[in-house]
Design a protein around this nucleic acid. Structure first.
Lengths: 212, 212
DNA sequence: TCAAGAGTTGACCATTTGGACAGATTTTGC
DNA sequence: GCAAAATCTGTCCAAATGGTCAACTCTTGA
């Protein structure tokens, strides 16, 4: 006894369109993206895209919402009880992985912020600010508990964001300078190690040694 | 005996248009920016903008070129003889200052890279790659000379870029999260101090104490 | 003073673009 | 099996947009 299971094509096409739109919006921004390009990328007639999303703005918001929901589900429960070095190392490695494996979402987010966050200002205030406050409180807790030297928790969070997302947003620059065509697992590992070790050492923690 | 001093309006309007275009292109990217918006921002009729710049692409390239030239003139002569802590500290502080004081240029550059660097791929290869190679060589020189512990020079440069430019590109996010309306000198100083100290410590150098 | 060039601009045009829509086709619930 | 709902799409359109142009004004050098 299942309630009104949604039509099949709906789910499938919704995802296809959202993915295509994410790519186009990430590359060209809201104004720069073309509905026709999104439709082409999704392999559907433009009118079909309009059937699922009334207009460009709705589609943009849907994509943005989709990304934010995914990101939100991604980082969870660190507490004052945890070891700061382990927690920060884990967080950094997760973020690097995300940048290497899902760069498009990061780029779309970057695009939105660069444009002054017209559609995310509320999200910044209502979701991200509390999130940062909460993490900052935990870090302050670690400092007060003598688990790590004093440092600015908010600037630390910004630094982790900056260094990790950089590999998604500036992929073209990094590949160009490193004379490479693509990212690979090995580079991701090196970057994770470097960023984690440097930041942890930088704030006076002893880096965790992953395995070897 | 001066040779054909250029007409007055030319220079003045050229600068006005370039500034207006920089702002619009930074916000909306090449495709998203509107010639009319650029003209409005410059306080000129659209046709007048077209008098100075044949078309949108030329204008975009002019703006890009303008920025790259400015940036190029900005960082100079560090040698193996210098003290790594001082040199890196100076570099980081310069970059933070640039991010706080001229964020628009950084945002336009970011936009171009996010879009896959269609107009800068040559510049990346011909100018930035050699620049990075040269700095990397100097850092390697420092390491070989025992002036600092071993670290990956290229990833270090990326980290400095990422953390400093972040304050230009993600200004809206940072202000939103910090519950501020604008940047000020004091924040710039705190950021400089934090970034410099954390990165220098992170790679095993003793941070320079600026004054106090 | 005055011709030649530089600069200015309103009006205009071709193309692109977001979006509407009606009719055709497929799927679903019963 | 069939009516209703969901889905699909070719075609069309009004608005937006990049760019042109010819007429006009201003500046400059001799």
């Amino acid at each position: 006894m299942k309630k009104a299971e949604p039509a099949r094509p709906r789910d499938k096409h919704l995802v296809t369109i959202l993915m295509a739109a994410e790519e186009e919006f990430a590359r060209h921004g809201l104004k720069g993206a073309r509905m026709q390009a999104i439709a082409d990328r999704a392999g559907l007639p433009k009118a079909n895209v309009h059937y699922y999303f009334r207009n460009k703005n709705r589609l943009y918001l849907a994509v943005l919402n989709n990304i934010m929901t995914t990101w939100n589900d991604f980082f969870r429960g660190v507490t004052v009880e945890d070891d700061p070095a382990v927690a920060l190392d884990t967080f950094i490695r997760q973020k690097v992985r995300l940048s290497f494996q899902q760069p498009t979402a990061s780029r779309l987010f970057a695009n939105e912020i660069i444009q002054g966050a017209p559609y995310l200002s509320e999200y910044l205030r209502e979701v991200m600010r509390p999130w940062v406050d909460e993490r900052a409180r935990i870090i302050t807790g670690w400092i007060d508990a003598g688990k790590m030297p004093a440092t600015d928790p908010v600037l630390l969070i910004f630094m982790i964001w900056a260094t990790t997302q950089h590999y998604a947003d500036f992929q073209a620059q990094i590949l160009g300078i490193m004379d490479r065509d693509t990212y690979d697992e090995q580079l991701m590992e090196e970057v994770s190690e470097f960023v984690s070790a440097t930041i942890l050492t930088g704030i006076g923690l002893t880096p965790v040694r992953p395995d070897r």
